[in-house]
Amino acid sequence: MKPKKSPVIRVIGFLALIFIGATLVLGLKITPPDAIQGQMVRIIYIHPPLAWVAFLAYGTTAIASGLYLWKRTRARIWDQLSGASAEVGVVFTGLTLVTGSIWGRPTWGVWWTWDPLLTATALLFVLYLGYLALRKLPGDINQRSKRSAIAALIAFIDVPIVQMSVLWWHSLHQKPTVFNPGQPAQIHGIMADTLLIGFIAFTLVWLWLLFTRLGVIKLEEKIELYGLEVALRERRGEVNKDLVETSQDSHSKTSLSTSSKQGPDSQVLVQK
């Protein structure tokens, strides 16, 4: 069984490819090197968009979990969406940590530093890995979904702490450049445009991955549901077959014993 892809998902995928291509061309070829960071600035065109998508994914997981927990809106789709978004979020958090580490080595001189924002992002990564582990546990699907939804909401409390930690603690990390309320944007021209295109590109990638994964989760649940149903039917079939065979055996045995006791006339009757 292949997941059906709607034309909208195909269009999103196509647009994502175009924007990723544009980010690559602009980021690697057209934009100039930074006055201080040199060529290392190029990783900035993908690092903040990756982090943004991770937060977007966790936000979606939290909202979908809330909708699943609320009795009026409770539906399987919210749980499925929550799981799909968290999976994509974990991948993007991992990529954020990797790209940050690659940038940190030449800039700070170390692959990893115990900067609060880095540490909190790593914690977020582990926290959502725990959430995904909870989702994968065997057992009643509704019980698991409800618990996962509660865990997702609690985990989401950590997200604003990650966001605010850069301001709460004295940090080595770069302060927000574009979305800094106390400071006007300090990034200009083609560099700002490339960063914006990067944000759009990775948001589209997230949407495409989210809907594709959602389709796969729906199919997995169908397999789980129908797989069990087929197994039950087969089992019932076996039981019926056994019963039929047993009843046929006992019937023929009874007939034979009766016929042997009553003689040739009664044997004719049994055959009739």
């Binding site: 909190a120 914690l123 582990v126 926290l127 890995l129 725990g130 959430y131 582990a133 909870l134 546990l137 865990a151 609690i154 985990a155 950590d158 702490i161």
Partner: peptide, 13 residues
């Protein structure tokens, strides 16, 4: 095994 995986990261702050 599940409890430490869920509890330890959330209690880190």
């Amino acid at each position: 095994t599940l409890l430490p995986l869920l509890f330890l990261p959330i209690s880190a702050p």
